[in-house]
Simulated assay, not measured.
Amino acid sequence: MTRIAHVSLRRVRLPLVHEFQTSSHAKRFLEHILVRYESTGGAVGWGEIASPSGPFYSAETVSSCWAVARDFLIPIVRATEWDHPAALAGAMAKVRGNHFARAGFDMAAWSLFAAASDVPLAAALGGTRARAEAGVSLGIEPTIDALLEQVASRVAEGYRRVKLKIAPGWDVEPVRAVRAAFPDVPVHVDANGAYSESDIAVFSSLDELGLLMIEQPFAPRALVAHAALQSRLRTPICLDETVEDVDDLVTALRLGAGRVLNIKVSRMGGLTHALRAHDVARAEGVPVWCGGMHEFGIGRAANVALSSLPGFTLPSDVSGSDKYYARDVTTRPIVCADGWVDVPSTPGLGWEPDREFIESMTVDRVDVS
């Protein structure tokens, strides 16, 4: 049995190398919370709470995650003995919602479990691939020409799929321009729930552009609207914010609300729940891919491991660290080469956290022994 003797939280701020514009706001730097466990047996595990800074993607923020982690999750983790990360996830389930906060703690448990078992994290999860196919996500640019420059740069780097953020007023024309300039590149669009049922004409136009998928057109709980739209489109709808747990996934599948699933470790409350969603989707014949939240190297390492599972048949958002950060929180960056990221074969997380650099970029800290 495992018991955690020491828990550390570090609120770390890193500047972005390229401003990322969404429909809600622009990001110039990111703050995420790093979680470190040390067991009574001396094993160490790391996790990352990769919540947005503001409540625009979900209700959680860095500040809310910090409070929940400090006041509720640390006491649960300290009081729980467990033999498998799923058991610790079960103990944390008494905290309702707060998926991002729980995800970082669950990730640290899996990292520790893999290290203590002397196996790579991917193998502990049941991964079967030696490398993960990488796509890239691009934000809303000031002009279409600027967007085309970004796409050209990422295609030249070998990324095997390009995701374009869209929003009302920035949708059909920029996507059509990208499609015309890069006809052979798999492209999909992500609306982050910015549209309503009155915008059917937009999706009918996008449906003619040969897209890989249309991600999260409507608000998270608008399952009936998604089902109605999917029945009208040839292009698969991909669900993201709609699916926070496996029950959401089962409901969406029964309604026919989408044909593709974006599995985000953070959105689903950790690797334990992401693994369950993968298994359900695979059994239903639904292709999945791993989405990202601009994770630092620790969260990105978990995404790479998850993407090695057999159900991940589409390129995932596991782009190299250099797309976002001049220097990452791991001693070596995660690198994408010709559209692929190698899945580590070393025990544990696979990338070593750079503790000195982490401390230098920390803006708040908690240590509980």
Rank of each mutant, 00 (worst) to 15 (best):
residue 7 V to G: 00
residue 7 V to N: 01
residue 8 S to N: 08
residue 14 L to Y: 06
residue 15 P to G: 02
residue 19 E to Q: 12
residue 23 S to K: 09
residue 25 H to S: 12
residue 26 A to Q: 10
residue 27 K to I: 12
residue 28 R to S: 11
residue 31 E to F: 08
residue 36 R to T: 08
residue 37 Y to Q: 08
residue 39 S to D: 12
residue 40 T to N: 12
residue 47 G to D: 01
residue 50 A to C: 08
residue 50 A to D: 02
residue 51 S to M: 00
residue 53 S to T: 13
residue 67 A to H: 07
residue 68 V to G: 00
residue 69 A to E: 02
residue 73 L to C: 03
residue 73 L to Q: 01
residue 77 V to W: 04
residue 80 T to F: 03
residue 82 W to P: 09
residue 82 W to Y: 15
residue 82 W to I: 11
residue 88 L to W: 03
residue 97 G to W: 01
residue 104 G to M: 09
residue 107 M to T: 10
residue 107 M to V: 11
residue 108 A to P: 11
residue 115 A to F: 04
residue 116 A to K: 13
residue 120 P to S: 05
residue 124 A to V: 05
residue 129 R to I: 00
residue 131 R to S: 13
residue 131 R to H: 13
residue 138 L to I: 10
residue 141 E to Y: 04
residue 141 E to Q: 13
residue 143 T to E: 04
residue 146 A to S: 15
residue 150 Q to N: 10
residue 153 S to V: 05
residue 155 V to D: 04
residue 163 K to V: 02
residue 164 L to P: 00
residue 165 K to R: 12
residue 167 A to W: 03
residue 173 E to P: 05
residue 179 R to W: 03
residue 182 F to S: 06
residue 185 V to I: 14
residue 187 V to K: 03
residue 188 H to Y: 13
residue 194 A to R: 03
residue 196 S to N: 11
residue 197 E to L: 13
residue 198 S to C: 06
residue 198 S to N: 08
residue 201 A to H: 13
residue 201 A to R: 13
residue 202 V to P: 03
residue 204 S to T: 14
residue 205 S to H: 02
residue 205 S to Y: 00
residue 206 L to P: 03
residue 208 E to R: 14
residue 212 L to W: 07
residue 221 R to H: 13
residue 222 A to N: 14
residue 226 H to Q: 12
residue 230 Q to S: 12
residue 232 R to Y: 11
residue 234 R to C: 12
residue 236 P to T: 05
residue 238 C to F: 01
residue 248 D to E: 06
residue 250 V to A: 13
residue 254 R to H: 15
residue 258 G to N: 10
residue 260 V to S: 01
residue 263 I to G: 02
residue 272 T to Y: 06
residue 272 T to K: 08
residue 289 W to M: 14
residue 290 C to I: 14
residue 295 E to P: 01
residue 299 G to D: 07
residue 301 A to V: 04
residue 305 A to D: 02
residue 307 S to F: 10
residue 309 L to C: 08
residue 311 G to S: 06
residue 312 F to E: 00
residue 315 P to V: 05
residue 315 P to Y: 05
residue 315 P to W: 05
residue 316 S to Q: 06
residue 317 D to K: 00
residue 317 D to M: 01
residue 323 K to G: 06
residue 324 Y to G: 01
residue 324 Y to F: 15
residue 326 A to V: 09
residue 329 V to K: 06
residue 330 T to R: 07
residue 331 T to E: 15
residue 334 I to Y: 00
residue 336 C to R: 11
residue 338 D to V: 04
residue 338 D to L: 08
residue 342 D to G: 08
residue 344 P to H: 10
residue 346 T to H: 02
residue 348 G to P: 06
residue 362 T to P: 05
residue 369 S to G: 14
